[in-house]
């Protein structure tokens, strides 16, 4: 494909600009700068790459650098409430103050470590419960008639599209001491004292399992649906019992779905804020809620940043581990 060679950037600007622009462009330093710029081979292709790159660098990567920076800053009573990290001292050289105090504070106060561990525990157990509930569901879905499957899948996805906040809110009405479940049980005479369910760990587990169940269902379904069913028939013909066939054929083949579903539930629920805030009580400390409180209630921006950095390293560690697992699985194949 032949294309006319692009004019040097300086000439392009000069031909497009008015007299003032032409004078400006012909100034020696400006011309040197523009010709240097024109050396950078910028094609349409590069612009297409550059645009999302710039956006993501500015609004996704740079913010983390700033979080890291502020996590080393001092708490100040000012607007914004943190000290500057870089300081042009009067002598004219740059001084960098690294204040490790925030991290030492996080390490010394058991609240943060507890919240950290508790988040991992809650997210892990919730993901296990999701797997337990979703696996038989996905299995039945994958083996359902094709005519029904579309409708059933739509029913799985539909709650996704309705407000997360409102779905969590719905559980308050169900779990309250004078809520629907307790009223029903007392009306039927099964209990005579309301069971305390709101503001407990139980409610948090329930909320997370409820909200993230579709995230487990969909990858499980897609890996079970892809499975070659003749393998099971062959096993049956050779006299394999159904349960053993499940353990030796179906389960290993659905392993990618299990791993994907598990991480789709585990990772987001680690940093969950809405569910522990609305359904949990004082005993449920989750790291997302701790960060929120430090920031909004205590206005402790540097501490909140340090909590965020600690959380981020946990998430990144899990992602690296997951990549390693995937690579190993590929190498084994």
């Amino acid at each position: 494909m032949m294309r006319p060679p692009p004019l040097p950037l300086g000439d392009r600007l000069a031909s497009g600009a008015g007299l003032g622009g032409r004078l400006l462009v012909n100034l020696a330093p400006v011309r040197v700068a523009l010709n240097l710029l024109a050396r950078i081979p910028l094609s349409g292709r590069d612009c297409v790459i550059a645009l999302p790159y710039l956006w993501l660098t500015l609004f996704f990567m740079l913010p983390f650098v700033i979080v890291l920076k502020i996590s080393f800053a001092d708490q100040l009573i000012a607007q914004p409430p943190y000290s500057a990290l870089f300081d042009w001292a009067t002598q004219g050289y740059l001084t960098i103050k690294l204040n490790l105090g925030n991290y030492l504070f996080l390490a010394s106060d058991p609240l943060y470590l507890n919240a950290y561990l508790k988040s991992v525990q809650i997210a892990f157990i919730s993901a296990l419960i999701c797997l337990f509930i979703a696996y038989p569901m996905a299995y039945a879905l994958a083996r359902a008639d094709a005519a029904w499957r579309g409708v059933l899948l739509m029913l799985v996805v539909l709650p996704f599209w309705t407000s997360f906040l409102l779905r969590v809110y719905a559980w308050i009405g169900l779990l309250n001491n004078n809520g629907i479940i307790n009223n029903l049980l007392m009306g039927l005479g099964i209990i005579d004292q309301p069971i305390v369910m709101m503001r407990t760990n139980f409610a948090v587990y329930l909320g997370i399992v409820y909200a993230y169940l579709p995230f487990m269902l969909l990858p499980l379904y897609s890996s079970l649906e892809k499975m070659d069913l003749t393998l099971l028939e062959a096993a049956e013909d050779l006299g394999c019992l159904p349960f053993k066939a499940f353990l030796t054929i179906t389960l290993p083949l659905s392993l990618p779905g299990i791993v994907a579903g598990f991480s789709l539930v585990f990772i987001p629920s680690l940093g969950e804020f809405v569910i522990p805030d609305l359904l949990g009580g004082s005993e449920t400390l989750m790291i997302g809620k701790v960060l929120w409180d430090e920031f909004f209630s205590n206005r402790a921006w540097p501490i909140a940043s340090a909590v965020a950095t600690a959380m981020l390293s946990l998430v990144l560690g899990i992602m690296v581990f997951q990549q390693w697992l995937e690579k190993r699985a590929e190498a084994g194949r």
Binding site: P268, F273, A308, M311
Partner: peptide
């Protein structure tokens, strides 16, 4: 996969 509290902060 980033927790929303981190992205927001």
């Amino acid at each position: 996969v980033m927790p929303e509290v981190i992205t927001g902060l």
